[in-house]
């Protein structure tokens, strides 16, 4: 591939999402969407993430439907290990009664893990396949077909997850402490004096807002960097052969760890939202 296009073009091609938008002439794709602004859709991110989400739900739902209290099958046993792992983490950090947090944590953990796992698919396979399909199926130039297969390297997705968690933080803060209690938490800490209200508010707002952004950027940054290094290794010609494997092995750790961190921090943030001072 590198023989036909320059390295920087190759990297850029790999880091560009397939975009869809509606223009005056109807639905348009990719470069035609450069001016679309906010109302553009990353179809590859959406398709892969939703597909993986459905895969997760389908796999776990199939176990849930056949769940037996007797001797579990192998798949049920595995699912139960995951459930138990998530449940233990939730119970360790969260001491309230809430039916949402555990399933939320499970969804985040498995879904993010599956999306991260796409990083281990060799970087060229799926984009190449998409290029061929675009070329032979729709008569497009393969270089104009974009396909970013790791949804967590798209800031839209990680930010969406983090904002979802953020809305839940706000919701539970207000639900548990009331509007007054939540306002008080934002304005009367850490300095409990009326004169410090603006200072407190600035500090607490930063603390509050830092949570979703750190969540989103941590996941995005880790996976984006990992993906970038895979792409860079792929540009090395023959040298990529010994390098891909160690990086992939190391990346297995990153994949699981980032999914776990996202889940864990979600639990911690939500348990903080439940705590009344």
């Amino acid at each position: 591939m590198a023989s036909e296009i320059t390295t920087s073009e190759y990297i850029k091609h790999h880091l560009t999402n397939a975009t869809m938008c509606s223009t005056d002439q109807g639905i348009a794709f990719n470069k035609a969407c450069a001016d679309a602004g906010f109302w553009a859709w990353h179809v590859d991110t959406l398709a892969w993430s939703i597909g993986l989400g459905i895969l997760f739900l389908w796999l776990f739902r199939s176990a849930a439907k056949k769940a037996t209290t007797g001797v579990p099958g192998k798949w049920q046993a595995f699912v139960e290990i995951v459930i138990e792992f998530v449940n233990d983490n939730v119970r360790d950090s969260f001491h309230g009664r809430n039916n949402l947090i555990a399933p939320l944590a499970l969804t985040i953990f498995v879904w993010v893990f599956l999306m991260n796992l796409m990083d281990l698919v060799p970087v060229d396979v799926l984009p190449w396949l998409a290029g061929q399909i675009g070329h032979y199926g729709f008569g497009m130039d393969p270089h104009d077909v974009y396909m970013k297969v790791v949804p967590t390297t798209d800031l839209n997705l990680t930010l969406a997850l983090a904002l979802g968690v953020f809305f839940l933080i706000l919701f539970y803060s207000i639900k548990v402490k009331g509007v007054g209690g939540f306002t008080k938490e934002l304005t009367m800490q850490p300095f409990n004096h009326w004169a410090f209200i603006p200072v407190n508010f600035i500090l607490e707002s930063v603390t509050l807002l830092a949570r979703p952004f750190s969540l989103a950027l941590r996941l995005f940054g880790n996976l984006y960097a990992g993906e970038l290094i895979f792409i860079l290794i792929a540009t090395l010609g023959l040298w990529q052969l010994p390098l891909h494997f160690p990086w992939a092995v190391f990346h297995i750790l990153v994949i699981v760890l980032q999914a776990f961190i996202f889940m864990m921090l979600t639990i911690v943030y939500l348990s903080l939202a439940h705590e009344d001072h």
Partner: peptide, 20 residues
């Protein structure tokens, strides 16, 4: 950042709801 964000938010909410 574009409309993908909204789509993902909806997908996330639906997945969590289904899981729950």
């Amino acid at each position: 950042i574009n409309a993908t964000l909204i789509g993902q938010l909806i997908a996330f909410a639906v997945f969590v709801w289904f899981c729950m």
